[in-house]
């Protein structure tokens, strides 16, 4: 038997040390994000070593494996460390099943378990490469790089795809539908596979959005400071004209609109296409 090399022993010691160190860290609750806004009471069912069952407020950290429940009328917004966000609607009950994020590679994994209620998920770094999963009692919604609203009452789940690469809906029997068009959605239940994706009516979107925010205060004197100065919006950037012609300045198909309008207004282009040379010459 060849005696072990000193270098091998050193490597083995380092490996054991690293394992022990990882184990020690794993026992600590891992931060997932912070409560970045809240309205009404959000109850945490406790995080070992951090807090017992309690109402949590804006600015407090949230952790992996933490279960949260909103009271009636409460809305909570969580900003995750990968810059994903989660808005939790009234009466919703959700657990952050998994949150792993490596800031260096900007990769990781998010998995949420929605028992009941409405949530909106906006994907951050993680969802660019790995689906964010929202598990419900009757199936799972997968979100790839985008924005989605998920609602469940325990027997039925609906997912509305608002933007991104795609949203998958898979029931407990493995039936899947993929939604790739913004504003479309699907729903499914315990004995009902995900429906063919269809456009979600604007009034349904309005209703869901209303439940994820506080209604306008309707009192000009009691207005939140900040916001855009009159006539200026940060969302239009420095686009000339702003919203005066959104199809030609802001839409993601603006180039085609501008090019078609500009080329279409030029009469020479049309006659050239029509006759080949653009000229009509008389018989001489």
């Amino acid at each position: 038997m060849v005696p072990a090399d000193f270098k091998d022993w050193w490597l083995a010691a380092a490996a054991v040390s690293a394992t022990l160190s990882t184990g020690a860290v794993a026992q600590q609750p891992e931060q997932a994000g912070v409560i970045s806004a809240s309205q009404g009471a959000t109850r945490s069912f406790g995080v070992p070593g951090k807090r017992g069952e309690s109402v949590i407020y804006m600015g407090e950290q949230t952790y992996r494996n933490e279960k949260l429940k909103n009271e009636s009328g409460a809305v909570t917004h969580i900003l995750f460390l990968d810059q994903s966000s989660l808005t939790i609607g009234p009466d919703a009950e959700i657990t952050i099943d998994e949150f792993v994020y490596d800031p260096a590679t900007k990769q990781g994994k998010i998995s949420l378990n929605l028992v009941k209620g409405l949530v909106r998920v906006v994907g951050g770094d993680i969802s660019k490469t790995n689906e964010t999963l929202v598990k419900t009692p009757v199936g799972t919604i997968g979100i790839r790089g985008g924005i989605t609203m998920v609602e469940t009452n325990g027997q039925n789940t609906s997912g509305t795809f608002l933007f991104g690469q795609g949203m998958s809906a898979t029931d407990t029997n493995g039936n899947t539908q993929t939604v790739t068009r913004a504003g479309f959605g699907t729903s499914f239940g315990s004995n009902q596979p995900p429906s063919t994706p269809q456009r979600i009516p604007v009034n349904q979107l309005n209703s869901q959005l209303n439940r994820l925010e506080s209604g306008p205060g309707n009192n000009p004197g009691n207005q939140q400071p900040g916001g855009a100065p009159p006539g200026q919006l940060m969302s239009t950037g420095n686009t000339p004209g702003g919203t005066s012609n959104p199809g030609g300045s802001l839409a993601n198909d603006r180039l085609k609109n501008v090019v078609d309008t500009n080329a279409g207004a030029n009469p020479t282009n049309f006659t050239k296409t029509l006759t080949g040379t653009g000229l009509v010459q008389n018989q001489s």
């Binding site: 909570t76 506080s214 306008p216």
Partner: peptide, 9 residues
């Protein structure tokens, strides 16, 4: 969107 949780947004 988080700012809309303030009723005086």
């Amino acid at each position: 969107e988080r700012m809309l949780l303030d009723p005086n947004a």
